[in-house]
Structure formats: C-alpha cells, structure tokens
C-alpha cells in the first residue's frame, strides 16, 4: 500500500494582502498536489496569486518554481509538485487593499 495523507492547511480562511500557509513536513512523500478552493470573493476585481515554496529547515523559504495561475473566480484549482525535500508551503498575495479578500480552503495532498 502507498502512504497517503490529506492535510487541510486552511479552512475557510480569509486571505488578504500577503499570506503563507503553515510549514508542512513532506520528507516521506515523493509527490504533492496543492488545492485551493476559492469559496467567497469580495472587493474590486481581486486577484489571488499563490506559488509553491520549499525549505531546508521549515524556516527559510525559496520559490520552487510552480505557481497557480491568477485566481479571479470561485472554484477549485490545483498544482502538482515533485522532488521537493522535507518541507512545503504556499506563499501568495491578494492584490489591492484589505477590502479585497478571498475566503479559501487549502489542501496539501501527499503520496509516496
């Protein structure tokens, strides 16, 4: 049997400005999918940008190179990642001021 886990990194989180998900240890897994469910969107033409980051220690983070296309509407989105070492997170930004918000649920799905 293959090892598998679904981690829910954010549940109905209200995202605005810059954000990062909590560090998650992934050393046991060889493949990952980040899901973003954009549940509610408020503000004027808000855009949500999110990119994958990896880390040697869970403290210092580097862009992995994989990124979501800009999210502008409610719906479900994902990106796939492989060969990432011991840690993964998403870093992102909602454009505009505090009034631009995405309510989002974020999953990290890992498999070995």
């Amino acid at each position: 049997m293959r090892h598998f886990t679904t981690a829910v990194l954010e549940r109905h989180a209200s995202l605005s400005g810059h954000f990062e998900t909590e560090p998650f240890e992934t050393g046991w897994a060889s493949e990952a999918i980040f899901f973003i469910r954009a549940e509610e969107i408020t503000g004027e033409n808000p855009l949500l940008h999110a990119r994958v980051q990896l880390s040697a220690d869970g403290i210092h983070w580097i862009d992995e190179g994989t990124a979501f296309e800009a999210i502008t509407a409610r719906g479900d989105y994902f990106v796939r990642v492989t060969h990432f070492g011991g840690w993964l997170r998403l870093a992102g930004q909602v454009n505009g001021g505090e009034e631009n918000r995405f309510e989002a649920t974020i999953h990290l799905v890992l498999k070995e």
Binding site: T5, A7, L9, H12, A13, G27, A56, I59
Partner: peptide, 25 residues
C-alpha cells in the same frame, strides 16, 4: 457552507499534525 458553529474558541485554526523527521537547520 460546511462552517462550524460560532464559538469563543476558533478551533478551525489549531495547528496541523504531520509526520516529522525532526530536522533542524
């Protein structure tokens, strides 16, 4: 919307559990 009932304690943001190799910088 699969929300939890209102509470003075927001348990939806309790930190994650995970399998760890206990690695340090």
């Amino acid at each position: 919307g699969f929300k939890a009932r209102d509470s003075i304690i927001d348990k939806t943001r309790w930190g994650p559990t995970m399998l760890s190799s206990a690695s340090f910088g």
